[in-house]
């Protein structure tokens, strides 16, 4: 009865209603699409293109989850969220998963009752200054004017960094990255601080990228990762292992080009387990056996997603760095598929 009342009311406006329950997976299946919270616009990570299609590194994770759950990477509703609305939207069930370059911190995980499912980008807070300022280290920034995005962990890290080094600074709070860029380029602040990936992405779009340097100091750890609601472990597992599948696929050499071929069966039992030709890992997650196959075929492995959105060949031009596989000296280390 309750449901029909609900649908009846909402049919008036043709809008959808959802039930927040501990069964996000079933609910997503019943609804037929995944609702995914992303940033309102951050170059390389999530932004709508001229056709209104969402593109970016975080967006790719949403698509991967949709491919794993529904077998269709396009069955995603993207919900643009601001830094202020993101956690509420997740907690209230407006989005099923939040992939909005969010830093994994203790208080967010525990106190805000969210569940981080892993790290899709290891980042750290850095500083960018114009080259002709002649600054080579962040420790020379005493008295500088610093542009900073409000409502993020960077704000707190900045305060900690300057006060622990006994330096003074003047914060210039801004709302979006685009705004910060404008202020910084006009010289309204000496320094722009945000995650190093964001700095690189921003610098890449300057008219004269060589005129700006990113200082060597990284003042914080910013493990950025997707997150889900606390208390729905099944759904958390789905999101977590989708991420792991993308990382493992890169390690095992499975790409969107060769996945169809490998799905026919290979000599490597781990690949077989990952792609569902051996064992029933998908079934354990409550998904189809070919879930990871869909993810890799439709979205790609971690490397393909990285290179396609933020890698060296894109305007963003990030190198893998910490985000290389553990075998290449990075931090990406997917647990075994077994």
């Amino acid at each position: 009865m309750k449901k029909s009342i609900f649908l009846g009311t909402l049919a008036v406006a043709g809008l959808a209603a959802g039930f927040v329950s501990a069964q996000t997976l079933d609910e997503v299946r019943a609804r037929g699409n995944l609702s995914c919270g992303v940033s309102t616009g951050l170059a390389g990570f999530s932004m709508p293109d001229a056709n209104g299609e969402w593109q970016g590194f975080d967006v790719a994770f949403c698509r991967a989850v949709a491919a794993a759950v529904l077998g269709d990477s396009t069955a995603v509703e993207f919900v643009p969220l601001t830094t202020q609305t993101r956690f509420t939207a997740l907690a209230s069930g407006e989005v099923d998963v939040l992939a909005r370059n969010t830093t994994w911190t203790f208080s967010r995980d525990v106190d805000l009752r969210l569940e981080f499912v892993g790290v899709n980008y290891y980042d750290g807070q850095g500083f960018m200054v114009p080259r002709d300022l002649g600054v080579t280290s962040a420790l020379e920034l005493d008295g500088a004017t610093v542009c900073i995005q409000t409502g993020t962990t960077t704000e707190l890290n900045l305060a900690d960094f300057f006060s622990s080094n006994n330096m003074g600074y003047e914060p210039v709070p801004v709302e979006t990255n685009a705004e910060a860029q404008q202020q910084y380029l006009a010289g309204a602040c000496d320094v722009y601080t945000t995650d190093a990936s964001g700095l690189a992405a921003t610098r890449a779009t300057f008219e004269d990228p060589a005129g700006h340097v990113v200082l060597p100091e990284i003042v914080s750890k910013e493990p950025l990762g997707p997150l889900v609601r606390h208390g729905d472990s099944e759904w958390g597992d789905v999101a977590r292992w989708t991420l792991n599948a993308m990382v493992a696929a890169e390690e095992l050499g499975v790409t969107s080009a060769n996945v169809a071929e490998m799905a026919a069966g290979t000599d490597n039992p781990e690949i077989n387990r990952l792609l569902g030709t051996e064992g029933d890992l998908g079934g354990m997650l409550g998904l189809e056996a070919d879930w990871a196959q869909n993810v890799i075929a439709q979205v790609g492995n971690y490397d393909e997603v990285f290179e396609g959105n933020i890698g060296a060949s894109t305007p963003i031009g990030l190198s893998r760095g910490l985000n290389a596989q553990w075998t290449d000296g990075g931090l990406l280390y997917a647990p075994p598929f077994r």
Binding site: L156, L158, A159, S163, Y169
Partner: peptide
């Protein structure tokens, strides 16, 4: 834990 640039009374991130 955060700083405010424009302030009419004493304030710091502490």
């Amino acid at each position: 834990g955060y700083d405010i640039n424009q302030r009419l009374i004493e304030y710091s991130n502490d």
